[in-house]
Design a binder for these strands. Sequence first.
DNA 1: ACATTAATTGGTCATTTAGCCAAATAGTTT
DNA 2: AAACTATTTGGCTAAATGACCAATTAATGT
Lengths: 97, 97
Amino acid sequence: MSNKRAGVIKALAHPSRLLIAESLMNGELCVCDLKDLVGADMSTVSKHLTLMREAGVLNCEKRGLNIYYTLACDCLGEFLRCVDKLATGGTKTKRCC
Amino acid sequence: MSNKRAGVIKALAHPSRLLIAESLMNGELCVCDLKDLVGADMSTVSKHLTLMREAGVLNCEKRGLNIYYTLACDCLGEFLRCVDKLATGGTKTKRCC
DNA sequence: ACATTAATTGGTCATTTAGCCAAATAGTTT
DNA sequence: AAACTATTTGGCTAAATGACCAATTAATGT
């Protein structure tokens, strides 16, 4: 269904969550790493991570005291390639009417 | 900046907007076509379209009484390929703690 | 000029989202 | 078992979002 798809996209449609996803392209990170990276309250980051996990974008694994998050799919690069093309595509903000 | 990127993603992170984007992969459509497709008030659809255009995802062109919208980039297929992989990727909703 | 059609804009309202803080949970170390 | 560290959960509030309706703008046809 299109709702699950939209949920996946929504899970990446936030500056902090996008930053998290990009950082995880280089390998797993635990919540406190991501908290430092994002610069928000740990509880806020944790909620972002839960959202992303529930959407199917992230997986997690607990080892010791830490919980390590990873990307659920290695296709994020191609996803971002398209996003960047759109984001940098000229000043298309022109209206036509 | 990461905010522009997130804006692009956000422009696709809604079931109606995703449907609009997918429909436009087959070529331009005017607002009333899209209104029928989405099944919402025309003003609602118009606002979705404005949002998508301002994010850089769509372009528009007025001809006669109609305004035709098109995708700003043909990369949407590869974008969706990744989204679908994530959206259908097993029951990864498992938690780890 | 007037009516008609396509689309956008402004207003309002209910819902969702994002952030912080405080409290709870779970594993570790002593 | 008590203190410590990492993470999640619950509660709250402010801001953003999405939907509809009514009013406006713009192009066309009469």
